[in-house]
């Protein structure tokens, strides 16, 4: 009976793999690139800890990171664990909600030493993710990939760790808020002011409207095959304008215009008043 049980256990086991995905905050990419640029002379790559949280739907939200000094030789990796812990403590003081979710390394894909480091992080947090950023552009593109590791065990013995790629969401709403134009260039003379930003946005809007016009014209004249999907989008967009009789619309616009103008007048008057008060206050001292 016992022999049977033992026999049952000696099968090749894959630990359960969950379908995970990850989302990366642009700050993390910036941080890693900065650390890579500032890496020590002899270092080939930089590695570090990823902080963030796991969202209710299982997505790993990577929101912050810090580099951890390490040294690497052919078959061993030494990680400055003390540094890692003190940095973690410091970060948690600022934002206790951000916990370790994994680790990152520069370079393309998983390398030999990765398994060891991954094992270390597995002790810190269950099921860490591993993010790789190809700062060398080895394939002509800055590939960013995320992995989870599955343990492959034979009986009680672990024989290998398998790294499995998981989908990565690189849409960066936060970066869009600042504007890619500002983040993309190596040097920008000044940050755009309110009105310049507005102008750019209106330019975009105009270009989009022109595109739609062109598309619709092309379809009407039979130059382009109609696409129902696009048609539906256009009708949705047109339909999203509220249906108002023009008198009501006119009134609405005029009322808002007057509100805004009133505020403008108010602020102008206040400024004049301030200047006046300033003059009087300093001049009134002839006593």
């Amino acid at each position: 009976m016992e022999a049977m049980a033992a026999k049952e256990r000696t099968v090749l086991q894959f630990s359960s793999s969950q379908s995970l995905s990850a989302k990366v905050h642009p700050l993390v990419v910036f941080n890693i690139c900065d650390c890579y640029v500032r890496r020590p002379d002899q270092a080939e790559r930089v590695i570090g800890t990823l902080l963030g949280s796991v969202l209710p739907d299982g997505t790993v939200d990577v929101r912050n990171s810090y580099a951890v000094p390490h040294s690497e030789s052919v078959d061993q990796v030494a990680l400055d664990i003390e540094y890692h812990h003190s940095m973690l403590l410091s970060h948690q003081k600022v934002n206790p909600k951000e916990v370790i979710v994994g680790w990152y390394s520069t370079g393309l894909g998983v390398t030999g030493g990765s398994a060891l480091i991954h094992e270390f992080y597995s002790r810190e947090v269950p099921n860490p993710i591993h993010l790789t950023i190809d700062t060398g552009f080895t394939k002509g593109a800055g590939t960013i990939k995320a992995y989870v590791s599955n343990n492959l065990s034979l009986g009680d013995r672990q024989i290998a760790a398998q790294f499995q790629e998981i989908p990565l969401d690189l849409r960066m709403v936060e970066a869009e808020r600042i504007g890619f134009d500002t983040l993309k260039a190596t040097a920008v003379e000044k940050i755009p002011s309110d009105l310049e930003g507005m102008e750019a946005s209106m330019g975009h809007l105009l270009a989009l409207i022109d595109d739609i016009y062109k598309y619709v014209d092309d379809v009407v004249e039979g130059r382009v095959d109609p696409d129902n999907k696009i048609g539906r989008f256009i009708s949705d967009a047109v339909g999203s304008l509220p249906k108002l009789p023009s008198s009501a619309f006119e009134k609405l616009v005029n009322d808002s215009l007057q509100d805004h103008l009133l505020l403008l007048y108010l602020s102008s008057i206040t400024r004049t008043q301030l200047d006046l008060a300033e003059k009087l206050n300093t001049a009134a001292q002839i006593l």
């Binding site: 640029v37 983040l183 190596t186 920008v188």
Partner: peptide
Amino acid sequence: KVSNSALISAFMTEL
């Protein structure tokens, strides 16, 4: 003024 390293600039153009 804003400045970015060439590496970041490359990544952002890609992303």
